[in-house]
Amino acid sequence: MTVLLEVRGVRKRFGSQVVVDSVDLEVSAGEAVGLIGSNGAGKSTLFSIIAGTISADDGSIFLEGRKLPNRADERARRGIARTFQIVQLFGGLSVLDHLLVALQAHNGEAGVFRDLRGNGATTVPEMTLCMETLELCGIAKLAHAQTTMLSLGQRRTVELARALVARPKLLLTDEPSSGLDESESLRLAHILNSVRRSTGVAVVIVEHDLATVAAVAERVVALDAGRVIANGTFDEVIANVDVRRSWLGEASA
């Protein structure tokens, strides 16, 4: 399989604390990777560095062999999409509008000049793609709903749909099951899997909930104190002694 994302020696420190310490990570096209680790292990920081919202002190990141630009919006247009640990939706916009923003921005087809030429209305292909994505995530009925009225599970699904609408190559999803109960997290995992099957997007998922990780990830990478301590299948990583000590809190044998 071809390598999609390549993270080489990324380091980040906040003050005196090294949060991400020389992390190497490879993700193949279409692969689903789980990222686990205790709180403060550097998972979310690594995510933000890949997405471009935080800049790394050292190291480099490649997408399909090409170095990524610096800013988050440029990276998004190159094909990296993400969801957030604390759901970030656009207040005042309908669900459909959320998808339109992401789609038009990604294609570079939104902006002052398009509007001033009088082409501000949504085109048919744009509309079709948005509705397809909503269908895929199972929330087509909510297209015209205001997001403030939705449940947390629905809000997370909207965030997912917004991330997927422009058909990214890589989806970063940060604790999608946080705050959801068992059945809701399973449902979200199910949506993730079906989306991956039909669009071929590679997924990196940060998650504490073992059931969700097991359901989504083909490969699991464990972080501790900013370093990769294990990398392999779910069962291998969970059986790893270091992982059991740092993450599951078991005394070392």
Binding site: D73, A105, R114
Partner: peptide, 28 residues
Amino acid sequence: LLIHGTTGRMLTAAHSSEIAAASSGVPM
């Protein structure tokens, strides 16, 4: 035209969550 077009939608989005807008590719 701007208010009702793509610009208006994009800026409303950025106004309520700048980080999410940037991560969606909005060139702020």
